Simulated assay, not measured.
Amino acid sequence: MVKRTRFDDADCPVARSVDAIGDWWSLLIVRDAFDGSRRFNEFQRSLGVAKNILAARLRDLVANEILETTPISEGSPYQEYTLTEKGRALFPVIVALRQWGEAFSFADSEPHSELLDRRDGQPLAPLEVHAHDGRLLTSDDVAVAKLS
């Protein structure tokens, strides 16, 4: 098996984030956790991933403090997985990936799921990046500053 490259010492926040999240299975697990999945069998049924891969990804997400485990009931050997504060902070990332996929991964007539505001049932507005003064920013408006 090929050993995965680690980025936990990289000076790039994107590289460290990718290192913490892991891979596509991990992002899909986080997505399912936002959608209400809590138990191993719920994740397995939704994703169709092999049990050993799912177990490894869940273990890594717990180790990276993105998910935490709690007993299903007192005295039960079974546990459920819930998002931590660090995991819940991935919500804008999941929304951004979802909105990008809606815009670029489906034909116009192809059905897909969408996120709706629970209060009014309306689709979410597109995510935007704003400057400290409220201006809308694009990639042309930002620069990376290396800190020493």
Results as ranks from 00 to 15, higher is better:
residue 73 S to I: 03
residue 68 E to L: 11
residue 37 S to H: 14
residue 60 D to E: 08
residue 60 D to V: 00
residue 44 Q to L: 07
residue 22 G to Q: 07
residue 69 T to I: 11
residue 22 G to L: 04
residue 66 I to Y: 03
residue 39 R to I: 06
residue 41 N to Q: 14
residue 35 D to A: 13
residue 29 I to Y: 01
residue 23 D to S: 12
residue 48 G to R: 08
residue 44 Q to F: 02
residue 48 G to L: 11
residue 54 L to N: 02
residue 34 F to W: 13
residue 54 L to E: 02
residue 47 L to C: 01
residue 58 L to H: 04
residue 43 F to Y: 12
residue 65 E to P: 00
residue 48 G to E: 10
residue 21 I to A: 15
residue 64 N to S: 05
residue 55 A to T: 10
residue 29 I to T: 04
residue 69 T to W: 05
residue 24 W to Y: 05
residue 69 T to F: 02
residue 26 S to I: 07
residue 57 R to P: 02
residue 28 L to R: 15
residue 22 G to H: 03
residue 68 E to M: 04
residue 54 L to S: 01
residue 23 D to R: 09
residue 63 A to C: 00
residue 32 D to L: 14
residue 42 E to H: 08
residue 38 R to C: 11
residue 33 A to T: 15
residue 33 A to D: 12
residue 51 K to C: 01
residue 61 L to K: 10
residue 38 R to Q: 15
residue 60 D to M: 04
residue 28 L to C: 08
residue 37 S to W: 05
residue 60 D to F: 00
residue 50 A to W: 01
residue 67 L to C: 04
residue 61 L to T: 02
residue 68 E to K: 12
residue 71 P to T: 11
residue 49 V to K: 11
residue 36 G to V: 10
residue 50 A to C: 01
residue 48 G to V: 11
residue 24 W to C: 01
residue 69 T to V: 15
residue 56 A to Y: 05
residue 36 G to W: 12
residue 22 G to D: 04
residue 48 G to T: 12
residue 62 V to P: 03
